[in-house]
Design a protein around this nucleic acid. Structure first.
Lengths: 211, 211, 211, 211
DNA sequence: CATGAATGAGCGTTCATTCAT
DNA sequence: AATGAATGAACGCTCATTCAT
């Protein structure tokens, strides 16, 4: 029999329990941080939301600050994970896939991103350490993508920097209302259609083609 | 005796003084709210910034909350004032003027807008009462503007809602880094050029024209 | 069957185990109480020091308070045990032996005594119940000892109370730095020499003898 | 008239008020620290003792810690002030004056010294930074004093280090019960007599002079 | 018997606001 | 009108102790 690893399993079970609890706390905290802001959210609020004693939380996090830090770090990792996909995309798949993927990734865990943005909007350290630092490679990749298409004669010769920023702009415009919670998250179908429209408009612009 | 108007004048002078002080307090507060967030900014911080006693502030505002409310209201009025200009623009002036004007208005008092955004991002009441309520007419106007151009055959038949959102998207992309303070405010020249590039890209898209 | 005494033996073995554990816990606690103070020492500190779960400690003591009480009681018993030796000493052995013995007893388990002093210095109940109550007989014995020597013409006629206090004074001076941990505990040889010097000075004073 | 310095006086008045309040708080705190220990004394205890709101205390001290620090520093200064007197004494005045002076200084503000001792007994930093550091010069002076008397043939040739420690020993023995509060502070007369007895015993020892 | 998890009570501290001058 | 002083309410956090396994 394979009962050679009970100690491992035992440990894993315990650790899984802890991880599960941390998740529960983080989810509730993110929800509250998103709705009221980090500062205005009290430990009591969080404890109430997860139905624990306040002091119990301190068994899973060293304090309110660490809950936020963990949320930020987790989202930073999420952003990093985008890069892996992006790097291979431009050649193999269409522009639409790229936009669709970015949207999907961002909107998954929308509440968490709302928290990240809220903090980054106020705190320089968060902005630089967690947002700019991790998004920069994405922007660079986009810029390379545009440059390559210009070289290939697919795009007309525009400033790649401005171009990259514009893609991000559409992005933000599409995604912000959902993150903020004024629009419901789109279904995969809706998201795909939005991505297609977006790419079409970016590609062709508003202007009518002259016959 | 010369007591014809002195009471009036006295009162006016006094009121002007009060208004001046309220301005000073609001400016300092907005600066601090922008940098540290409303919650994290203490009355003591503000009093120190304007070099007054803490309790003196209560002679000009009923409390910290009212300082914020006043900032929000003021910026809501600013947004309303955009509408007046916008309403006449589409016919007389170019698209570029429109974008340029919007940018200019938004970036004037950037700190105030940063505060508005920070609060609206967190507080539903602020979002609805001060932001959505006042920006909605602007969006509608943009949508009308696009519809009109489609009817006129200038734009190709796209969804006007999506179009309006895209204009706002560029807008946000151009303006957000300045509001956030990661980019310096552009000079009028730079702003104009940015507006031109933006409009050009919106109009023509990225794609190369086929011969 | 051989179950005549097993229950007894079993119980005894068990009790010994418990006593051993209590000792371990008390030693670690005394160390920590001495270094950081009773209040500042947490159950967690103790548990960590003895490598047990925190709640396990409650199987051996009813709480932190009882650990302290046990330490205090134990040292009170130690002081009582001094009396047995003292009572017979003055006649049979020299003054030096007396001082030496006291020093040895006090410095054995120095950490425990440091804790006792710390508590007695702060808590009236501890001072009266554990320190004064048990030291009083020692002081009385010393006083009797001095009175007897005065009667015998060995000491000159001084106030026996003041004399007893002075012996204790030398005592404290010699012992306090070791208890406090600013001096290492003396070797038996060093202790003997210190006792001799002390007694010599007490006997003869500082003054040079006039020819 | 001498009303040229009102601003100075005004400032002084305000500062005096603050100093007075700090004194009140320190006195009450020292009392409580002495009775229950620093750790066991809560801000609420202190606030209650001085009949203030808890938060009011923070207008005078940055926290509980600073109250203790101030007490410690103050007593350290007191000890330093002893040195000034000591330096001139040995030649001009008698040994008795020296002992009497030391006693008086130590017993003035006995509660404060009790707190200092309590902390020094537990906290190494306090012991070294506030006690040893400031008492060392006193001990050195005593040692010099003894050496000088030995050279002059007044004292017999004993170890000056041991001698100094013995003087301190008597000192501690005389003073400790008062600091601890088990004996009332002596009147100046009583103190003088105690000093005289002490010096006599130190000088001549217990032993009867042999005819 | 041993223990990690849970928790209520309470701590030191902050701060928007009010009060007395 | 201006202000330093005062404060209640609430916050983040700790810890001795209990509980469930």
């Amino acid at each position: 029999m394979n009962n050679q690893s009970p100690p491992l399993k035992e440990k894993t079970r315990h650790e899984r329990r802890i991880q599960r609890q941390r998740r529960v706390i983080m989810d509730a905290s993110a929800m509250l941080f998103a709705q009221k802001g980090y500062r205005a959210t009290t430990i009591r609020d969080i404890a109430q939301a997860v139905d624990m004693g306040e002091s119990t939380l301190y068994g899973y996090f060293t304090g309110k600050q660490e809950v936020l830090q963990t949320i930020l770090s987790q989202q930073a990792e999420m952003v990093d994970s985008l890069l892996v996909h992006l790097a291979e995309l431009p050649d193999r798949k269409s522009f639409v896939d790229l936009v669709d993927l970015l949207m999907e990734k961002i909107l998954t865990g929308a509440v968490y991103n709302r928290v990240v943005i809220a903090e980054a909007w106020i705190d320089d350290e968060v902005l630089r350490g967690f947002v700019l630092a991790h998004w920069r490679p994405i922007l660079d990749t986009l810029q390379d993508f545009i440059s390559a298409r210009i070289s290939a004669g697919i795009f007309r010769p525009i400033d790649p920097g401005l171009g990259a920023r514009m893609i991000v702009a559409f992005f933000i415009a599409a995604v912000l209302p959902v993150l903020r919670g004024v629009e419901p998250p789109p279904s995969p179908r809706q998201r795909r259609r939005l991505a297609e429209s977006t790419v079409e408009l970016i590609s062709g612009g508003f202007n009518a083609r002259m016959g």
